[in-house]
Simulated scan of single mutants.
Amino acid sequence: MTEMSYPALRAHHRCVEALVADPEVTGDLLLVGMWLARAIHLHLPKPAVNDGTSTWQLPDIARDLFPLNMDRGLAFNGQMVEAPSAEPDWRRVFEVLKNDIRRYDPKVDQQLPAWARPRCSGPMVRRASCGKGSYTWGYLTDVETGRKRLVGACRKHHDWFQQERKVNAAVVAATEAPPPPANAGGRLARHFLDIDWPALWVKLDESWTAPPEQMGSARPKLRVVLGDTGSSFSVQRTSSTAARPRFALINGTLS
């Protein structure tokens, strides 16, 4: 067994303690975070070394966390069923990381349960809004902040709702509302501050662009770069004299 230094053990303990204490890091995300903490701080599992670069593969994560991959197949009776596969479920790791991309999620702004629908916001004579159950609903954009507000309408206020959406769309097109500040994702990023997560997120989702942040962030010491082939990532030492991060975390594309 590789001898571990006290600073490495202490850094790993603090990282895991913070991950477990974070109420937003749960389930598969917590498992992946704990695996990353162990790999980065303790080099467990032991990485492969190529040209001085320590390298792990995404299947290594899946093999430890999700060894049973359920693939859908056609059974003898003609029905689609799930059966265990010999390969670890590395796609599950990919989805965990992708779902944690830093972004703006309009659902978070509404402060409503996922199953709930908004009440009717149609105007009334004797009170501010109707308040009945909604027959239809949709988002209206605040042109000053770019944030979205979920608005519902009952059958009586359907025409009012359609007009509100039409007017809002015209105003947004004419004023070019700013991108809204991020309010979701980035949960692992706050526990691994030295990683340059945006480089990874843009590879996980090519359409991703960095949303505005309400608070600034420290300069990263790790750079996440995804290659064109393979499914590996590595922690690589870079030149200490250049104005670059000290390490690079490299992750290959998934296929």
Rank of each mutant, 00 (worst) to 15 (best):
E176M: 12
R126E: 15
A210K: 14
L222W: 04
G138T: 03
E87N: 08
I195W: 00
R244A: 10
T53H: 05
K221N: 14
L65W: 01
A86S: 06
V151M: 12
T145I: 12
V202S: 12
S217W: 11
W208H: 07
G73W: 14
K203M: 13
V96L: 14
G131M: 06
Q111I: 06
G33S: 05
A182S: 12
C120A: 03
F94Y: 14
L58H: 04
K132Q: 14
L112D: 09
L19R: 01
P88M: 04
S85T: 07
R147E: 14
P212Y: 06
G122P: 05
R187V: 08
S129C: 09
P198D: 00
L9A: 12
Q214S: 14
G27I: 10
A174D: 15
D71F: 00
G27F: 08
C15M: 13
G216S: 09
P220F: 05
A189W: 03
I40N: 01
T2G: 07
V25N: 12
F247E: 01
V96C: 01
L222F: 09
F66G: 13
P106T: 07
L112Y: 06
G146P: 08
N168K: 11
Q214G: 15
R92I: 09
R149G: 10
D142A: 11
R126C: 05
F66N: 09
N99C: 14
F192R: 01
A11M: 11
P88E: 08
A83S: 07
A128R: 12
Q236G: 14
T229W: 06
P118S: 03
A189Y: 02
D100N: 04
L200F: 01
A48D: 15
D196R: 02
S255I: 10
E82V: 03
R102S: 06
R119Y: 10
M4G: 03
T145H: 08
N69P: 00
G73F: 08
R190W: 00
A173K: 12
A83I: 12
D51S: 08
A48Q: 13
H158D: 09
P220E: 10
R165C: 11
P47V: 05
F76E: 13
A248N: 12
T136C: 08
D28G: 11
H13Y: 07
H41W: 15
H13K: 11
T26A: 01
P220D: 13
A62R: 05
N168V: 07
E176T: 13
G78W: 05
I40F: 13
D28T: 11
M124Y: 04
R126G: 06
L19A: 12
